[in-house]
Design a protein around this nucleic acid. Sequence first.
DNA 1: TCGGCTATGATACTTGGTCTCAGAGAGGCG
DNA 2: CGCCTCTCTGAGACCAAGTATCATAGCCGA
Lengths: 155, 155
Amino acid sequence: MAVASDAVRSRILAAGQRITPQRDVIAQLLEAASRPLGATELCAAVAAEDPRIGRATVFRTLAALEQAGIVAQVSLPGGQTGYLLCGTDGHHHHLVCQGCGGVDDVLEAAVSPFLRRLERDHRFRVDHASFTIYGTCARCAGPGVPRSARSTPAR
Amino acid sequence: MAVASDAVRSRILAAGQRITPQRDVIAQLLEAASRPLGATELCAAVAAEDPRIGRATVFRTLAALEQAGIVAQVSLPGGQTGYLLCGTDGHHHHLVCQGCGGVDDVLEAAVSPFLRRLERDHRFRVDHASFTIYGTCARCAGPGVPRSARSTPAR
DNA sequence: TCGGCTATGATACTTGGTCTCAGAGAGGCG
DNA sequence: CGCCTCTCTGAGACCAAGTATCATAGCCGA
């Protein structure tokens, strides 16, 4: 059976959490998915991998991994919650492609000027902002069918 | 019993929806709250106003009002959903004050430069973005404490 | 090896929301 | 006025997501 990558395992350890077979299964499933998994989806996948793992353990593990900064919750369109293994350390945001389900990370540094501007304009102190943005990635936009305006030389 | 304001009623009508006593109650409760109400909270308030109004009607009404652009869903910290009567027409975003629960609207125009920048940097076409930002409004930040001294970078 | 702590599985429960279905009520029309 | 249709409603079953509880298993350090 596959196991979670060393990188993930070491991050779990670094957060002072134990690596257990159950956590390994869950981390590995999220890692293999590379797109946000819904609660039902994840529970089903976990059950398929090892039917003896309980729902409570799944959610506990997600909470533990989230606390360790290894998984993030994103709100999927339709109001559902998706769980996502994220490669980026620290607080960041997500671009979710509605075509392939892939996720791109947006570093906090890219959004903080925007937030500071909001703070100034609205006389508001921002404590916490986390947003998920839906759209279409370059690959899914299709080669040869680029958005008319997107000839911009992106890095 | 109080009724929803004329502005709200006319917006319901403009969206081709009927004004019924039940919708009136719900719109009026949201209007009076001036902060996001959770599902339980709202159902309880509705029941207090008229115990014969069913849950299904509450959610149906919320959906109808949301479609009419009169209410918005915001995700409250803790993952809960709040319902909110919004004064601004068109797509916009919300700043939620964690002190008083008040909500300030952020017009789409204020965020689109940020989104365009993201599109450029990530080669990503943004279809839909809606974010709710938590923080403290100027009033709750407290009088006498100058804003310049208390600005904190977003986490 | 012993004690304590962490993690686990089972299960019941809560919350948030949807679906279904029969019926009430309003509006339009002849 | 009477009828027809269409929207909206209430009740309640149902579902999905997540939490709480509790006894137990297993790891780990002393």
